[in-house]
């Protein structure tokens, strides 16, 4: 329980509030436990070298055990499994075609974010992104000056805003609420204060938000 308290926070990667962030948080915990086990194995083997006293062994057998067995086979097995898991997880996070996708644009500059909405043309918000909760959102990210990065830790991973390019990030919030967002690529002296918020509306709230833009 103490561990869980240590993980919460409105910018915490391990306190997910959307499907993408949840996939990644699970991935983290799996890797964390796996890494802990491997570390324990290595430390035990190193300590073992100081305890065990044997007569001079057979070099060919030693190479088979240490290099082929542990070095090659063990490493390849673990890494292949992890790679496969990572690819499957990554595939799930890609912006795939779906009927209810909401499209928004995020344009970064030193040191502010400007958001616009396909569902409400012409309307622009500064440092506050409105989205519906429970629906997938494609954020089209670009920059007007230097490289920035769009990151809402509790909803999804980050994606860079690069001048001349548009990158699309899929995010989704489980429940209505306000989520904090950050710029995550050093972009000059205003970097620390270059933050924004994401407001996830319930269906009624989103309908109202969209309707306000309809003449």
């Amino acid at each position: 329980m103490g561990l869980l308290i240590g993980c919460s926070g409105d910018l915490s990667v391990v306190d997910p509030a959307g499907p993408a962030a949840r996939v990644i948080a699970t991935l983290w915990w799996v890797m964390f436990i796996g890494a802990g086990l491997i570390l324990a194995l290595v430390v035990a083997l190193v300590i073992g070298a100081f305890r065990v006293r044997r007569t001079e062994g057979d070099a060919a057998r030693d190479e088979k055990v240490w290099i082929i067995g542990l070095g090659l086979c063990f490493s390849i097995a673990v890494l292949t499994a992890l790679l496969a898991y990572g690819l499957v997880a990554g595939e799930r996070l890609m912006p795939r075609v779906a009927a209810d996708v909401v499209r928004v644009q995020a344009e970064a500059r030193q040191w502010a974010w400007r958001f616009s909405y396909d569902d409400r043309p012409g309307y622009i918000t500064e440092n506050l992104l409105h989205i519906p909760a429970g629906r997938p959102i494609d954020v089209a990210i670009t920059s007007r000056d230097v490289v920035h990065s769009f990151w809402v830790p509790r909803l999804a991973g980050k994606l860079d805003a690069i001048p001349g390019h548009v990158n699309v990030l899929r995010i989704e919030a489980d429940a209505p609420g306000t989520y904090r967002g950050l710029t995550a690529e050093y972009n000059g002296e205003g970097y620390r204060r270059h933050v924004f918020s994401v407001k996830a509306h319930d269906p009624a709230g989103w309908a109202a938000f969209v309707a306000e833009g309809t003449p």
Binding site: V13, A21, V23, I24, L27, W28, M31, A35, I38, L39, V42, V43, L79, L82, L83, Y85, G86, L87, A89, G90, L93, S149, W151, P153, A156, G157, K158, L159, A184, E185, Y186
Partner: peptide, 21 residues
Amino acid sequence: VIGGLTGVMVAVVPFDWQAHD
């Protein structure tokens, strides 16, 4: 070994999207 293990973690793309920067 710890550095190598966290290195493998960030080689896994989805985790890197969170951990990067």
